[in-house]
Simulated assay, not measured.
Amino acid sequence: MCRWLAYSGSPVSIEDLLYKPANSLVVQSRHSRLGAETVNGDGFGIGWYGSHATPGIYHSIEPAWNDRNLRELSAQASAGRVFAHIRASTGSAIQQSNCHPFRYENWLWMHNGSIADFSLVKRDLVMAVDPSLYPDIEGSTDSETFFFLALTFGLAEDPRAAVARAVGFIEETGRNHGVQFPLQMTVATTDGDTTWAFRYSSEGRSRSLFRSTDVSTLRHQYPDNPLLHDLSDDARLVVSEPLGDLRGAWEEVPESSSVVVRGGRVDLHEFAPAAATAA
Results as ranks from 00 to 15, higher is better:
Ser97Glu: 15
Leu155Pro: 01
Gly154His: 07
Ile137His: 01
Leu155Asp: 03
Gly168Asn: 05
Tyr134Pro: 00
Trp107Leu: 06
Gly168Pro: 09
Val163Arg: 02
Ser97Thr: 13
Phe210Ile: 01
Gln221Asn: 10
Ile170Glu: 04
Ser216Met: 13
Tyr222Pro: 05
Gly91Met: 13
Pro135Glu: 07
Pro223Ile: 12
Val126Leu: 07
Leu228Arg: 09
Asp193Gly: 07
Pro131Lys: 08
Ala164Arg: 03
Arg207Val: 13
Ser92Leu: 04
Pro182Tyr: 05
Ser97Lys: 11
Asn176Trp: 02
Asp130Tyr: 04
Leu155Val: 08
Gly139Arg: 03
Ser216Val: 14
Cys99Glu: 05
Asp191Gln: 02
His111Thr: 05
Thr194Met: 05
Pro159Ala: 09
Ala93Glu: 15
Asp230Gly: 12
Gln184Cys: 06
Ala188Val: 12
Glu138Cys: 07
Ala164His: 05
Thr173His: 03
Asp224Val: 06
Asp136Trp: 14
Glu203His: 12
Ala188Leu: 05
Ala150Phe: 06
Ile137Arg: 10
Ala164Asp: 05
Leu151Arg: 04
Thr195His: 01
Gly139Phe: 06
Gln221Trp: 12
Pro135Tyr: 08
Thr173Glu: 04
Asp193Cys: 05
Phe181Ala: 12
Val163Asp: 00
Ser216Gly: 00
Glu105Tyr: 09
Asp136Val: 02
Asn98Phe: 08
Phe181Tyr: 15
Phe210Gln: 00
Asn112Ala: 06
Trp109Asn: 03
Pro226Asp: 10
Thr195Val: 15
Ala128Gln: 14
Gln180Tyr: 03
Phe146Leu: 11
Ser216Asp: 14
Glu138Thr: 12
Gln95Pro: 00
Arg175Gln: 15
Val179Tyr: 11
Leu149Val: 10
Ala116Cys: 10
Glu172Cys: 08
Thr189Lys: 02
Asn106Met: 05
Ser97Val: 12
Tyr222Met: 10
Glu172Trp: 13
His220Asp: 14
Arg199Thr: 02
Val163Gln: 01
Arg219Leu: 09
Ser119Glu: 14
Arg211Asn: 00
Glu138Ile: 06
Thr152Ile: 08
His100Thr: 04
Ala166Phe: 06
Arg123His: 10
Gly192Tyr: 06
Met185Ile: 10
Ser143Thr: 11
His100Leu: 09
His220Ser: 13
Leu149Ala: 10
Gly154Met: 04
Ala162Asp: 04
Thr190Pro: 01
Ser92Ala: 15
Ala162Thr: 08
Glu172Ile: 03
Phe153Lys: 12
Gly204Ser: 11
Glu105Gly: 00
Arg165Val: 02
Leu125Glu: 02
Gly154Asn: 06
Arg175Gly: 11
Arg205Pro: 00
Asp136Tyr: 15
Asn112Pro: 06
Glu157Pro: 00
Ala156Pro: 00
Arg199Gln: 09
Gly192Thr: 07
Asp230Gln: 15
Arg175Trp: 12
Arg199Ala: 03
Ala93Trp: 11
Pro131Ala: 08
Thr173Arg: 10
Val187Asn: 03
Ala197Trp: 01
Val167Asp: 02
